[in-house]
Design a protein around this nucleic acid. Structure first.
Lengths: 337, 337
DNA sequence: TTGAAAGCGCTAACAA
DNA sequence: TTGTTAGCGCTTTCAA
């Protein structure tokens, strides 16, 4: 009964159904023109054989894989997860899948990853950030597929981008802090070399502080990315020790902001009365914790959705696709005045 | 100079380097026997042409894709992200990649996803949980590749499993709660129909309460999975209203536990004095928040690593691979007596 | 250490 | 609406 050796192919189905392999192929494509009874017979035979469509053969012959490759710094980050979620959902509607890879906040790992992903012949590639090794840039330029940079607004985009200015977003938060009366403001972020978005945010902080004639030197290095809650807590401890007269702190993410907040709670430092805290990313935690966190909503999911829509329109060749600038939104909540 | 039409193939390289395509193929395999100078010439020619290896052709001919397919309920969950992280790292060491898909906590979506993933001819598949539709089960059984179920210990495994008893883990927490003197204990979880692991945890709660001769009916339904912080906060509000004499609550995850904790803080309900809280999953937040959360560490990353090692040993045909039971660990912290 | 021949399973292109 | 032919780019297999 069951041919236990080799899995059945379209040729096997064709034999049973009494048609040509090409007709079998057509029966599996929803759009194709084929007599309904023929299709039924073919699908019946396929079911009987336990046939599984072989996309590796289809991919090679048609030169379409149905993949969109995506690189993100870490899978374990709700912001990037949201972007991937939005992207996947849009692409799924067009029958495409995302092929994900993690760079661990390292441009060299990113380069290696991009090379691997391109070998799988994705029909488009989405990368996080606008800073890459020269070789990675070259690989992307030569790939002859749509390239979308996200979470940034590169000075010289490789192809398209869907993002925002990280520096600009933080400048906006500094402006708000200054407007409500804070003067001795610190920035809590990771070491400059790794997380390029984090270091863009720090630059935005420094620029804005200078613009307002304030001291931009209250910078607390929280360690190597990923900067998460523990790093935020440790950095707050350091800040309270080294610059105890600080009135407010802007953190590179809501996760580190929450860690900083927790450290304040443990030490009886009142937030926001004695120390105001701002975060970045509008993670769920910032809207639940006590007090809730002032933050910047970078519209993570929207970035993914827009990237997906952009890709589909490029591949379809319809419309006039262009890069998209997302406007981050300042959310003022309880952790600041 | 640049052949702007078609991307270069191994045949193009072979022509330039003056060798056969087969030799070019060998030059790209690290293990193959080839004269060092020949390889240098070939790699030089490849570099010059901007050659990118085409894995779609390789996949078809060799019948090996280098993929391991993985289904997880949600990308936006640190526990599953950790499992995928551990798995990916192990597989990467063997030059394999993970192909990820999200089921959104829905067995029908899972079935559809499994079908799609199998078409890509993964060399193994890892699924989260041990409950599937009959058709999904059949697809996995017929796939003739290693199947690993995780985060559960199925009564009838499809192939192998790397997991633990969700019910048993929660029973252990109930035992501890009872031992330290709590009697009126509630369980906060999602609707039974969707999240099968969550409902296993609830069963474990009910069984253990009955075993101790306590009332097992303090069950708060927190809505449809994913159950996160907001749902936890709302459910705590409902609990305080409906069963105000409750002494302790066990939450289906640390995220809902944190939401519940935050709601208590807002209302001035002292934790743990007036309300003890237990979580599940040992998320980072539980070790940072104030008070820290008593939880169960399901060893998420370890599950992924073990699954990866198991897959590699099955594919290599070495050793005597078998299913693996992980022992979850109770972490008693500040949110309970 | 290298080469020649064949073909993985599907589908583009064209024909009927 | 269906069939025929050829071939996607690589690697298995066998031979030299």
């Amino acid at each position: 009964m069951k041919p236990s050796r080799k899995p059945p192919t379209m040729a096997d189905i064709a034999r049973i159904a009494g048609v040509s392999p090409m007709t079998v192929s057509r029966a599996f494509r929803s759009d194709s023109l084929i007599r309904s009874e023929t299709r039924q017979a073919i699908l019946g035979a396929a079911e009987e054989l336990g046939y599984v469509f072989d996309s590796t053969a289809s991919n090679l012959r048609s030169q379409r894989t149905g993949f969109v490759a995506v690189t993100i710094p870490s899978i374990n980050n709700a912001n990037f997860a949201d972007t991937v979620g939005g992207l996947s959902e849009v692409l799924e509607g067009a029958g495409m899948q995302t092929l994900l890879g993690y760079t661990n906040y390292d441009v060299h790992k990113e380069e290696q990853l991009i090379e691997q992903l391109l070998q799988r012949k994705p029909q488009a590639i989405v990368v996080t950030g606008g800073k890459h090794t020269p070789r990675a840039r070259k690989l992307l330029e030569n790939a002859h597929i749509p390239v979308i940079e996200t979470w940034d607004r590169p000075a010289e985009p490789i192809g398209y981008y869907v993002g925002f200015s990280n520096a600009g977003a933080v400048r906006g938060m500094v402006d708000h802090f200054v407007a409500v009366g804070y003067r001795r403001i610190a920035f809590l972020g990771g070491d400059a070399s790794r997380d390029t978005r984090g270091s863009d945010r720090r630059h935005g902080f420094v620029e804005a502080m200078k613009y307002h004639g304030l001291d931009p030197s209250r910078l607390i290095a929280a360690g190597t990315p990923p900067i998460s809650m523990r790093e935020g807590a440790n950095a707050m401890a350091a800040l309270l020790k080294q610059m105890p007269d600080t009135e407010a702190v802007i953190c590179v993410s809501d996760l580190s902001a929450f860690g900083a907040l927790a450290e304040c709670l443990r030490r009886g430092v009142a937030v926001p009365e004695r120390m105001a805290i701002g975060g970045f990313g509008n993670y769920e935690i910032g809207d639940i914790c006590v007090p809730t966190l002032t933050t910047i909503d970078a519209r993570a999911r929207l970035i993914g959705e827009k990237a997906g829509i952009l890709i589909l329109s490029i591949l379809a060749g319809t419309g006039e696709p262009g890069s998209i600038t997302i406007a981050p939104e300042l959310l003022v909540r309880e952790s600041t005045r």
